[in-house]
Structure formats: C-alpha cells, structure tokens
Design a protein around this nucleic acid. Structure first.
Lengths: 207, 207, 207, 207
DNA sequence: CATGAATGAGTGTTCATTCAT
DNA sequence: AATGAATGAACACTCATTCAT
C-alpha cells in the first residue's frame, strides 16, 4: 500500500498512473454533469471511462471523497485559469467587472459540462464533511479576493460605500445563476446576459 | 388502498391520517435539511419521526417521489404565504423591493430548516424527472410574476430600461445566496444583508 | 374472537358475512386469473372487491391459505356441477366421453376466468402444504371416479385392456391443456377441439 | 460492467465467472423445484449455493429475470439434448412415438428436479412479460416440429386424418402430466407408464 | 361488524470498498 | 499496475397479518 496523499499534488506518481487518474476524473465530470453527484456511481463512471471494473477507481483513488475532491479541484483549476487569463488584461474597475461576467459565461463554450458538474458537487457538499473543507476554502479564497478588489475600488473612489462581502455575494450568485441557466437552456443568450449583468452591477457599485 | 392523490387536497383522508402525513413531512424536512436529499433515506426519516419502520412511510405515501413532492409543496406554501403577507402591505416600487429581501431573510427565523431542505431538493431535481415538473412550474410562475412587476415599474417610469428576466434572475439568486449563507452561518447579520441588497438593487433598477 | 372454521361450511355465519365472503372470493378469482396466484395480493383483491382495506379480508378469512382454499373449492364446485349436469344425461361409454370434452370446453363460455385461476392455484400448490391437501383430495377423488368408469367400460367389454389410471391421466391432461389453450387464445376453436379429443380417446380406448 | 448478454453465449466471460453462474443456476433449479418459482427468493438461492449474500447473484446476473431465463434455457437445453439423442436413432413413425415417452420419462432419472422447476417456471410465466417470450418461442417451436412430424406421418399413409395441432397438444400434455406425476410419486412406474402412453397414442394415430 | 393504522419481515437491487491474484 | 470476484450494508417498497377502536 503506497502513500497516496490525494492532495492533488502529483508527487510519487508514475506517468501512467497520472494518466489513468486524469481519465477517470474526466469521466466522472461527464457522469456527474449528466446524472448529478448522488447518481454518479462508480459503475457509471467506470463505464464512461471504458474501464472494466469499479475496482480500478478504488485502486487509483482512496475513496469516493478523494475522487470528487479531485474532480472539483480540476474544474475550479481550469475554470479560474480561463477566467483569470481574461481578467488579467483588464485595467481599472469597470472593465474587469464586465470581463468577469463575459469570461464566466464564455466558459460554457469551452467546458460545457464542467459547470453543471461543479454545481451538483457544491449543492451536495455537506458543510460538516471534512472533504468539503478544501472546496470551501477555495471558494472563500476567491470570495476574499473579490472583496479585496471591491474594497480597492472603494479606496480609489470609483465605488460607492457598500458592504463588499454582500456585493461579492450578489455578484457571484448572479454569475452562478446565469451560468446554470445558460447550461440548461441552449436558447439562452449568454453574451447578452453578461452585458446586462455588467450594466446592473456597474450601476449598483458606482458612486 | 383509498384514494391518496398526493396533490395536497385532503379529500378522503382521516384526521389521524392527515396528522401522520404532516408528521412525516415535518420529519422529512428536518432530515433533508441536515443530510441533504440524496442521503435522506426512509430509515432516517422514520427514526426522526419516531416511527418503528420505514413501511409506515410507504403506507402513507405512494412512494419517495410522492413524499418529497409533498415536502416541497409544504415548504413553498408556508414560505410564499409568509413572504406574500409581508409584501401585500407595501405600495410603489421601492418599498416592495426592500420588503422582499427583508421578508425572505426573516423567513429563517420562522422556519430555520425549510430553506436548506428546499435548496437541496431543487439542486437535486433532475429536469427530466416527471415529478419535478410541478416544482419547476411553481418556480417559473414566481419568476414570471417578478418579471411582470419589474416591467410594470418600467412602464410607470420608476425603473430604467433593463431586461426584466435577467434582473429577476439576479434578484432571486441574491436572495437564495443570502438565505443559504444565513442558514449556514449563525453570526451572519441577515437584517443588514437585506438592507444592503435592497440598496444594491434599488440603484441597479432606478433611472 | 368468534370461531371461524374455514371449512367451507357456513355454520354460524350471518347472511351479510356470507355475502362478504362470497364477494371477496369472486374478486379473488378475477385477480388470480389476471395476475396469477403469486401476484394476487390482498391489496389487489380488496381493490377489485371495492373494499377499503386489506384488513377486511383478514377479518373474514383466517389467512391467505383459507381464502385461496375457498376460491379453489368454489371453482371446483361450480365447474363440476356444470360438467356433471351435462354428463348425467349421457348413457353408454362413448357418449359420456364425447360429452366430457364438450362440457369442459363449454365451461369457458360460462366461467371464463375460473379455469385460469384454478390452473394458477394448482400449479403453485406445494404438495407438502397442509392446505393443499383438500384440493388434492378432491382432484384424486375425481380421478378415481374416472378410473372406475373406465374400468366399468372394460368389464362391459366396450374398452380394451389398458391401465385405467394412465388413461384417466391422459384424458384429464388433454382436457386441462385444451382448456388452458382455449382460455389464452380467443381464436381457438374449442368445439372442434372437443370433437378431435373425443375421436382421439375413442380410438385409444376401444377394442 | 462487462458485456453480460445472458443469451447463453459465453463471450467475454472468465472461467471462474462461468463456473459461478453455473453454480448459481444449479442452485436456483433446486430451490425452484422445491419451493416453486414465486418462493424462490435470492436469499434461498444464495443459501443453497453457499453464497454469503444475495448481492452475489445480482453481481453475476443482470436481474432475477436474467437468472430464471438462464435457468429455463439450461433445463430446456439438457432435456431436449437428452431426448433428441434418443429419438435420432429411431426410424419410421411408431418407434419414435414410443421412444418419445420412454426418453421423457427416463429424463427424471437423469435430472430429477429439472422438470419440476421448469413446470413451475412455465406455470408462472405471464404471457405479457417480455422475458417470457423466449421460452414461449422455444416451446412453440418444439410444438411445430411435432406437428410437422405428425403431418409427415399422415402424408406417408401411416397416420389417420386428425388435426395435428390437437394431437400434438394431447401428446405433450400426457407427457407433462406423466412426468409431473413421476416426479412427485417415487412409487410411480415410469417405464410402464411410458409403454401405456405409447400404446394409447399408437392406437389414436393409426389408420 | 367493520375499519384503518400499524407492524416487521422480506423482496430484488445498487452501492463503495476490499483483496487475492 | 491492474483485475475481477466478493462483501455486506443500505436502499425503497410490498407483503400478510394484527389490533384498538
């Protein structure tokens, strides 16, 4: 029984091991997006991944918790990578806000199933569950950085005086709802929605 | 055996039957709020309700779908009753918005577990599931009435020109996020949050 | 707790009690014919009988065994009554044989579901089951009388020397198979079949 | 997970898998013969097979339907193999008829419980059940070949003019009844019975 | 006489996980 | 590094039966 930390770091793993894990994670994302986390059994994931037995999954992951944590990490990683790369180009305080919504709704074109999967994972994360902690930490870290950016805008005299925590909450929840809506409804005009939300929060934040 | 329509009408039910059903629904709400819908087994619900066997639940409800539909109906019923009674007193377009957030966050004092349970139910509702339809209909109906109210404000010259659907989406998602946060964090100042959100959307909607 | 012998005799029963029992037995026959004995639950029977609870059935019958014994008795009673009344008119040894098949296949016009129900009961009767004994006795009694009639024909010089037990077995099994077939297939020509079987066994028995 | 077609082909099965399946099928035959199909629960079958849990059966078979179909296939396979091997040696039209009864009653010495199990399975097969279709097809196919053989005998001038379908029905039902009787009654002289039935149908068919 | 609420064992099936090979 | 067989608990649900009213 070798040490598998399950921390997401790839220390001490061979190449094929890493490849198998990635393959399983990818399959898990598809299955969770389609069936929801509670119905995403090892059986379905193994089938999706083209594996012959569920034992394979247990072999590569310490348990189901380990797997879905990895799944959440992966989704957060690629998503924030995508969004951050778009935001980096924007300066000031108005442009980044517009870019935030645009980038998040553009995400769906790049990774159509990732957001649905993440939504199901977050919705079913029990707060007392130790495995959830990692995910919560990541989310609150993002929240904190958003709050900090809002505070900066207030100090710079661009934003009015509001509670940054609440404003960040509203911004994030609008993003989540819009993304969920866009993922479910193919006729939904995501780009227009992004512009509307940008207008909305521009007015809500400005002096 | 007898006609159990599960539609909320109490036709053909004895008093004790109705009482047992209510007792089971109440227990189910607690369990769903604590463990999440997917982990809310008949066993846990029966234990919470002080019943000796899971068969009792099957005896009073046609199936699990029937039970959780009843649970969702009950939560929506008492919640909207509470909120609507508060909103009815408010006139104009600014006051109702403030009252909306205030009432929704005050809900948690009245029914602390209901919102968490409902959140888990809607999060795990599969769109293809026929039983889900009723719940979806109710939610979209509420959404439509919110949109209509926003449109009215625009016609009255109180609100600026925005997409009412997107604005309603943002308002609802902010409400949901705030309620979820308040339900999880006992230190969260719900009343202050309600005021902040009201300010936020007042600015976002006004001309 | 009054004494209910369940022996089929109606001693000590009130009129309404007897009527209820008859109603339940009738409903049970329908349900058994449609769903088969193993799927004929008290719930289905109560529904068919228009009763509000399964408790009613348990109240009137000591148990499921008691009920299905009564059912079997009733079917055997009306069936043999019908057949015997037809056979009584026939004299000699050839005519009764013809009449036997004709009467048994005509049974289906009178009681379309009875035979299917009885078939399912007999097929699922466990030989060790004490309740089965009564049914077995009745069947063997019929078998014995058939054998005796065949033997008489042999003594009278009308029939060749065969084993009456085997011949009776063949006659009864042909009847059962033909009846089962006729019950399942509405296009089956029962009258023609009766004639064919009469021809068959006339040749098989004659000197 | 892997392809388990349940069609009798052994594609993609390991040796041990095939062995376990066979073991379970064998146990199921015993249990069905003893308790009847409706009472042949996975629990009883697992116990008979010496397995620790009913989950094992579900692991090797897609469901109960799959298992009992395999059981029926197995019984039909070994039985018809046995009978056909005996019939192949016989020429003409009289000898095969005698051999048919002899072989079928000799079956019981080889496979004492198989016939009882099969009887219970066909007796409880619901005609609308899709899984039943395979069994029905097999039986009707056998029936058709028997009819064809009878027709051939008529064309050859060996048999009189009778309805081959009815004659085949009578032959099969006599066989079934005799086999059932022999299986239940250890004192029953099966060989003598076979000779009697052969005499009977020789007379019934000849010109 | 009759009811309906309650019981508890039993149903087939799915689940994540383990382990010898 | 990987496999597939095995495990046992959990799942929703049905059953015949009991009993107080």
């Amino acid at each position: 029984m070798q040490a598998k930390d399950g921390s997401g770091k790839q220390s001490g793993r061979t190449f094929t091991e890493a490849a198998r894990r990635a393959q399983i994670v990818e399959a898990a994302i598809e299955v969770i997006a389609e069936h929801g986390l509670p119905n995403a059994s090892f059986a379905k994931i193994a089938q999706e991944a083209g594996l012959s037995s569920t034992g394979m999954i247990s072999y590569h992951f310490r348990g189901k918790n380990d797997l879905i944590r990895e799944v959440a990490d992966e989704i957060v990683r690629v998503s924030s990578e995508f969004v951050v790369s778009k935001l980096r180009r924007e300066a000031g305080f108005t442009a980044p806000l517009r870019a935030y919504f645009a980038a998040n709704l553009a995400l769906l074109d790049e990774y159509p199933t990732h957001q649905r999967a993440l939504t199901s994972i977050v919705a079913n994360a029990r707060p007392d569950d130790p495995q959830t902690l990692g995910l919560i930490e990541k989310v609150t870290e993002i929240a904190r950085s958003q709050e900090e950016w809002l505070r900066e805008g207030q100090r710079a005299g661009e934003f009015r005086a509001f509670d940054p925590a609440i404003m960040a909450l509203a911004i994030r929840s609008a993003r989540d709802a819009a993304v969920a809506r866009a993922a479910d409804d193919p006729d939904f005009d995501a780009a227009a929605c992004a512009r509307e939300l940008a207008d909305l929060f521009e007015r809500a934040t400005r002096k």
